[in-house]
Design a protein around this nucleic acid. Structure first.
Lengths: 334, 334
DNA sequence: GAACTATATGAAAACGTTTTCAGTCCATGT
DNA sequence: ACATGGACTGAAAACGTTTTCATATAGTTC
């Protein structure tokens, strides 16, 4: 059926060991190397990675387990990671957990069965709690979501500070009744919620927030209901771009003018946040850098397992747009 | 180091063959099966997929090779495919070619080395031309991009008709000078361009179009230059959502009112196309269905290789929004 | 009760590589 | 001329499974 290294060896008139060495980096005379290369071309040989991995005990594969590839943040991170893996000559296995801890557990086991060299992982809040108790057969670098007591390398945003900046900005622009819409399945959502609470407290404002499943439809449903109430907020912050999509849609449907009747601010500088009228104020995350450096941390860890745990916290950039324009001095208007 | 099936066998007091059978679906007595399961739990055994694949000659893996995972269309398709694979108990390997034929070739070879059971593939225009001449070691299902003379199963949109519908609609709304912005690396771009040409011809209009790299920045650059000219079009159609992003940004920067000074229509019903003012008219592709049915076609093909080639062409849905509002009767205005 | 048959189990071969080990050959230094 | 060593090569073991083959045991049929 499939052409194996034996076939190549036979055609080239050498031993299988020589073929293996010629294809790898072993010492082979130029003459034989040429013969082997010719034989490879003639036979159309492709090495069997399973056999190679089995024997060499190296998978040359790293896993990427994220919650939702449709979240543009993860899409961008995955893209950067894939690129870095390609450059390093490694394969990347992408797993989508749908924010489901059960599915997450299955994929984590699968990664071990694949004998991946390492893992980039954005855990659910639930499994993240279990992380300290869990033993992995491979190095793990957490992306986007980590906790204080995890023993893994990580690359995250300074969520607390970023959300704080958003609140400060809104307050400065004259908004007081600021509502929050946060994803409830990730620690990132929690951190941004905490940043929100701290920010509101610092300004002596009373917080008012909701936690929802991290999807546009969930946010839309919640926001629709919320914005219909008499005590709806003057401004709304969201913890990711999917939630912002849902919230904005709800605002449109409720006929609210932005920012006059509802200011908006959130995360992730998607291109549409600029195109939409009047432009959404967002915290831009360095997505490319997150994916790239996460992969680099992993590669360094593979090289040197004794390295101390490194937790990289990156800062976000606040991009101010029309959705948080200074509030006209009309205090007390519903 | 790693715990193997021998360790489990030793702990369970049975042979390795029995362990293998107990874990698979071989005939094993209930008593021994229980012993094995206990031993697995006690040892923390995880089967080595490389060894399993090598011996069984089944990879249980399918490849997904797309041009750009950041294109929301491919993101959605990948998501649906991953889900279908998960359900079928298969692994999915995602490869991103960046629209680069060289990278594409590398990944295609890699898929063979992985001994994937099958491949979902969105080829570049260049390699697509080579497709009829190429032999694959695995069944291939083309998604989004196919040609008339390919011998592979495929799932595509009726691009010609969809673009025709867009042109018809624009003409009906009173637009005459309709420009086109098309991606040049994919056959999909070509088909939509042909649909554009046919549509313009049918209405007796003179076409005017540009072909660019399929990215927002390329579209932005081209559109910026184009819209600055005196003979800029009254309407612009684009062949995908990335190009639309770039085009719209250029229109905004040029200070053009939509649709009064420039109508817009394109592909892919991204949520922002609804949120943006005045809403973009688009052809909605059944992305979930494309990913799902592509996977199904592949699974069926794996079951029965003798099946005739099946080319599935799906229809798009035209969603009319404000960006193509009826043109005020002001013929001849630049 | 003997001859089958079906079922469960273990021993060992096989999958396609890499890597170890043991050479073989040739150049080099004495 | 002879030992020493380096560079290359081939035979065979090993990686961790699944699967084939043989065997033992129990159950069935005449």
């Amino acid at each position: 059926m499939s052409v194996s290294i034996r076939d190549v060896a036979r055609v080239a008139g050498v031993s299988v060991a020589t073929v293996s060495r010629a294809l790898g980096n072993g010492p082979v005379s130029d003459a034989l190397r040429a013969q082997v290369e010719a034989a490879v071309k003639a036979t159309g040989y492709h090495p069997n990675l399973s056999a190679r991995r089995l024997r060499s005990q190296r998978s040359g594969t790293i896993g990427l387990v994220v919650a939702d590839i449709r979240n543009p943040f993860f899409t961008a991170v995955a893209h950067a990671a894939e690129d870095a893996a390609y450059r390093a000559g490694l394969r990347l296995i992408l797993c989508n957990t749908e924010e489901d801890p059960a599915r997450e557990a299955i994929y984590l086991g699968l990664m071990q069965e694949e004998r991946v060299s390492g893992l980039l992982f954005a855990p659910t809040r639930l499994t993240q709690k279990e992380l300290p108790r869990q033993r992995f057969a491979y190095p793990v670098v957490l992306i986007d979501r980590t906790g204080p007591n995890s023993a893994h390398d990580s690359v995250t945003l300074d969520n607390h500070a970023a959300m704080g900046a958003l609140i400060d900005h809104l307050v400065e622009q004259g908004y007081r009744r600021i509502g929050g819409l946060f994803g409830k399945t990730s620690n990132t959502g929690v951190e941004r919620r905490n940043g929100y609470l701290a920010g509101m407290l610092a300004h002596g404002l009373t917080p008012d927030y909701r936690e929802v499943a991290p999807s546009a439809v969930a946010a839309h449903a919640e926001a629709t209901q919320w914005l219909a109430r008499g005590d709806r907020p003057e401004a709304l912050v969201t913890s990711n771009s999917l939630l912002m999509t849902g919230a904005m849609k709800a605002a449109r449907e409720a006929g609210l003018r932005i920012p006059e009747q509802l200011a908006l601010a959130g995360f992730d500088n998607e291109s549409w946040t600029e195109l939409v009228e009047p432009g959404i104020t967002v915290i831009e995350q360095p997505v490319e850098e997150i994916g790239r450096t996460a992969m680099n941390l992993l590669l360094e860890r593979l090289q040197n397992p004794a390295l101390p745990v490194r937790k990289l916290v990156l800062g976000g950039r606040c991009i101010v747009r029309g959705s948080t324009q200074a509030r006209a001095s009309m205090a007390g208007v519903a």
